[in-house]
Design a protein around this nucleic acid. Structure first.
Length: 569
RNA sequence: CGGAGCGUGGCGCAGUUUGGUAGCGCACUUGACUGGGGGUCAAGAGGUCGCCGGUUCAAAUCCGGCCGCUCCGACCA
């Protein structure tokens, strides 16, 4: 292994973090001189960062291969027609970086590769004998994100490991899926980041089921619902929860004057009832159709669930004038009399008995509004947003809510791509079969950010050995020949035995060198100073420990290896 | 795209309210002293104050437009 010298290292450490950096990992990556921003969501990776990324990639590669996947490489530049074939040109639309070639043909920079790999599949695979298949690549993806954020967490150009499997049927698919799932756990553990697998929505990728691998951290951008009792875990965007006891009552419809009471909280207070005794109406435009959603007053509508319940693709809240056009009265809306085909009801109002709802006229509500008797909905579905404290759907315990970063996502795609793109094979009976597909992604730089976020202290990064850019950081102190000779000896012995070594050969004060060593975060620091050498000693210090220990120069190499071996990863 | 904020030397900031020829800390260069947790002293280099236009005798400062970046939301593997 080559030895890196700090005097030559391309990059510089900063005493103060740039003001734009918010999270610990972003600040440390900048301060340690590992990354430099070029534009919003676009970063350069300087030599130590690139080394870490290569190490992460190698871990991923090993685990993917162990799971039976083969590495390949697909193009980043793709004709737009490919995306029209799968039907994603529009649905993925705004995120696609578009460009024109010199013949005026529209190309896109690939944000992901389901289309390309399906195209490859149909050109290559003809027979059930060729299945199963599993391939992966690590490649730069381009997404024109509406809002890049959080340093490396959400960027516009990034390396993704993406894997794809093709199987003859669901059972065979499950084997590939399980292997990938296990590989994911292995990868994150080896990188020193703990994750939790949660049920998720498959979003623009499509398909039937998906699981995200979430690094729980307060700086995360996803809300994760966890059951402390039974282990249920899901992204809030699809988390299920029990509705608990409603406060509905039996009785005849009865109008009640509620002047100026246009909110659920106000209504509950005005009438002296809990919010659970009310029904809330929320209005959305779903695929162009005004939609009347009804849910118990204490709950919120989850727009993504609403979308899925209606098998739709676009949703947004209705504008006030659109509500009026639809004939609904905001603040006092009633599901009674509304065309049932436009109503979606959450189970919380269906099973609740009589609730207080709007009367569809200003300053007036109705008591004892009962589903089935007074109104009905064409669609009854779970459209509720799970919140912290809601009862778990499985065991009833109070759910926790945590923030998290999505490091990986694995999907069962079914025939979402193989069907429209006509990728098929012949089975043993000569029948044409559409294969079951899976895809499996990991954000590589995002994973590095997570490693830093979960492995640092006030002084800097504490790299896990497995992904550290340097194993050993040598700090020479003093200019004498003795020091120089000892340093030269130690660094060549260590690098000769396969370790990545960085030596701080700059003419800096001890404090500067120690601080930069802490910042850069190599697992082991070796201090070689004139003072110690007088006693024939040098100092070893693990980055994670606070105390250094002196060892004889003679046994330094062995001691260094032993110190590194004492680290779990 | 809606809301908020910020653009002054490599980094962090002051100066903008009340226009008058740009300053501080760190970093950088040179020298001396110093030398085991970001040292001291001295002397330096580095900025058309994001861009364009306007007002004015005079604009970092006031006005208009644009661009960039960050945060919240929408959206999003």
């Amino acid at each position: 292994m080559p030895v890196t010298h700090m005097s030559r290292l391309f990059g510089r450490t900063l005493r103060e973090a740039p003001a734009d950096a918010d999270s610990a990992n972003h600040q440390l990556l900048l301060r340690s001189g590992l990354i430099v921003q070029l534009a919003a969501g676009v970063y350069s990776f300087l030599p130590p960062a690139w080394r870490t990324l290569l190490k992460i990639e190698q871990i991923i590669r090993e685990e993917m291969e162990a799971a039976g996947s083969q590495e390949l490489r697909m193009p980043a530049i793709q004709p737009r027609e490919l995306w029209e074939e799968s039907g994603r040109a529009d649905s993925y639309g705004p995120v696609l970086f578009n460009l024109k070639d010199r013949r005026d043909r529209t190309m896109v920079l690939a944000p992901t590769h389901e289309e390309s790999v399906t195209d490859l599949f149909r050109k290559i695979v003809q027979s059930y004998r060729d299945l199963p298949q599993s391939v992966f690549q690590m490649q730069t993806k381009f997404r024109d994100e509406p809002r890049p954020r959080g340093g490396l967490v959400r960027v516009r150009e990034f390396i993704m490991k993406d894997a794809y499997t093709f199987d003859v049927d669901d059972d065979a698919f499950q084997l590939n899926y399980n292997a990938m799932r296990q590989a994911y756990y292995n990868i994150f553990e080896r990188c020193g980041v703990s994750v939790v697998a949660v049920q998720a929505d498959s979003g623009a990728i499509g398909g039937k089921q998906s699981e995200e691998f979430i690094f729980l951290t307060e700086i995360g951008e996803d809300n994760i619902v966890l059951c402390p009792s039974c282990g249920y875990a899901a992204n809030q965007e699809r988390a299920e929860f029990a509705r608990g006891e409603g406060s509905g009552v039996e009785g005849d419809l009865e109008q009640v004057e509620t002047p100026g009471v246009a909110t659920i909280a106000g209504l509950a207070e005005f009438l002296g009832v809990p919010e659970q005794a009310t029904a809330k109406a929320a209005f959305f435009l779903v695929d162009g159709e005004p939609t009347f959603a009804v849910i118990r007053g204490d709950l919120e509508v989850n727009e993504l669930k609403l979308l899925n319940a209606l098998d739709a693709t676009e949703v947004r809240p209705l504008l006030p004038e659109e509500v009026e056009q639809a004939g609904w009265v905001a603040g006092y809306a009633s599901p009674i009399g509304v065309d049932a085909s436009r109503v979606v009801a959450d189970p919380s109002v269906v099973d609740a008995g009589g609730l207080i709802a709007g009367a569809n006229q200003v300053d007036s509500h109705l008591r004892n509004v009962t589903y089935g008797r007074d109104w009905s909905a064409a669609t009854v579905a779970d459209i509720g947003m799970a919140q912290s404290g809601d009862p778990c759907a499985q065991c009833g315990a109070a759910l926790d809510m945590r923030r998290g970063i999505e490091l990986g996502h694995i999907f069962k795609l079914g025939t979402r791509y193989t069907d429209p793109m006509e990728a098929t094979f012949l089975d043993a009976d000569g029948d044409r079969i559409t294969p079951i597909m899976g895809c499996y992604g990991i954000g590589v730089e995002r994973l590095m950010a997570a490693v830093v976020q979960s492995n640092h202290d006030d002084h800097g990064i504490i790299w896990p050995r497995s992904v550290a850019p340097f194993d050993v950081h040598i700090v020479p102190l003093g200019a004498g020949d003795e020091v120089a000779a000892a340093v030269a000896n130690v660094e060549s012995e260590l690098s000769g035995s396969g370790l990545n070594v960085v030596t701080d050969d700059r003419n800096e004060r001890a404090g500067v060198k120690f601080n930069d060593a802490d910042l850069l975060g190599a697992p082991l620091r070796i201090t070689i100073g004139a003072r110690g050498l007088k006693q024939g000693q040098i100092e070893l210090k693990l980055r994670r420990d606070s105390e250094a220990s002196s060892v004889p120069l003679d046994g330094a190499i062995t001691a260094a290896h032993e110190a590194l071996a004492s680290l779990s990863s």
